[in-house]
Simulated scan of single mutants.
Amino acid sequence: MTSLAELTTPALLLDVGVLERNCEAMAQRAARHGVALRPHLKTAKSADVARRATRGHSGAVTVSTVAEAGYFARHGFTDLTYAVGIDARKIAALHDIERANGARVTLLVDSIEAVQAAGARARELGASFRVLIEIDTGGGRGGVGPRDDALLSLAREVQRSESLTLAGVLTHAGHSYHVQGGTAIRAIAEAERAGAVHAAERLRAVGIPVEVVSVGSTPTAVCAQSLEGVTEMRPGVYTFFDLDQVARGICGVEDIALSVLATVIGHNPRSRRVLIDAGALALSKDQSAAEFRSGLGFGLVCQAGGTVPLPGLCVAELHQEHGLIACEGDEDAQAMFRALPVGSRVRVLPHHACMTAAPYDRYHVVEGAGSGVQAVWGKARGWHAGV
């Protein structure tokens, strides 16, 4: 077993025990609500994580890049929802992924122009795809409103296509990331559910079949009181959790499975900073949790052997390959220097697991405090992939 002291830093650590606990809890939520779980793997981008997130379920997953679609198809996950509005220039690559792996990729649309372009390109290739119409239930990112006239026009345009088939509707309550507390998130979860179900009912009322009613987001999946009328949910960051979810009360620090191992490379008594070799590229500059909680900097600092934050310490400043740890208020900088000597190792808990994990090509898998590396798991990166 490789010790943490032997790893080259920065390194991405994943606690498999916490991961499995998080996956099991979400699987139980889906079962209680009577809906399918189609985890969004844009967070983990890892087949080893996907196997745990889909254990006991259909194996259906959600992806956000062509690279992810190719990677997961090659690893045996063949029921894929590509949950980003489709660019027709990606149709050929997705068709290649389907043919090479016996996969089915379901596309997302929210405009007639996208339907026409995707349909034309698929027809040229002799391909066919199922599509979901994206519904905007308050997030304001993409999609048509559940009550908009455009919904029916869009569905009829899909029906006219020779190469596209309407599977249903999909929504994502991204605005749930900007409220705190169960009451506020439950209200958004209900609006998400009600909007998607209403859109499906409108289509069915005019004779358009709707098989899939898909909702997403970890906060709403955790807090939803009812998913009546929904067929599946697509949370993603719940596999790892992060400080962003802690700050809004979705989980506790003990539920964070992901951390970045870094080495202390210097002390700067003038600025009262400890330097580490994990900077903006290793941690990301996302400070999303700061919307609800102060004192987090760019991540909380823990000893290498565990994930209990050291009181008063955070990564206060980032450069490309340097992170600077500071002590809160008038805490004794000398005490910080003694606790974190040059050459020692620390773990940093991230604000946003998706952003932090994305650049890395592997996870170093650990379990519990003080454990060594039990395994190394690969993952997808980037946007483009072969079949």
Rank of each mutant, 00 (worst) to 15 (best):
R32H: 10
H33Q: 11
H33W: 06
V35Q: 04
A36H: 08
L37F: 09
R38T: 09
P39N: 10
L41D: 04
T43A: 15
T43V: 07
K45S: 13
A47H: 01
D48W: 01
D48N: 13
D48Y: 00
A50D: 08
R51P: 02
R51V: 04
R51F: 01
R52T: 05
T54K: 01
R55E: 15
R55K: 12
R55Q: 14
A60Q: 13
S64I: 04
S64F: 11
T65A: 12
E68T: 01
G70L: 09
A73S: 13
D79P: 02
L80E: 02
A83K: 10
I86N: 07
I86M: 15
K90P: 01
A92N: 09
H95Q: 11
D96H: 13
I97R: 06
R99I: 03
R99C: 15
A103N: 11
A103M: 08
A103P: 09
T106W: 00
L107R: 03
L108A: 14
D110G: 12
I112M: 05
E113R: 12
A114P: 00
V115D: 10
A117N: 09
G119A: 12
A120F: 06
R121C: 08
A127I: 03
F129E: 11
T137M: 05
T137L: 07
G138T: 05
V144I: 09
V144R: 06
G145Y: 00
P146K: 07
R147S: 14
D148L: 03
D149L: 07
D149C: 00
D149P: 05
A150Q: 13
A150N: 03
L151W: 07
L151K: 09
L152A: 12
S153H: 14
A155W: 09
E157P: 00
S163K: 08
L166G: 06
G168H: 08
H172P: 02
A173T: 03
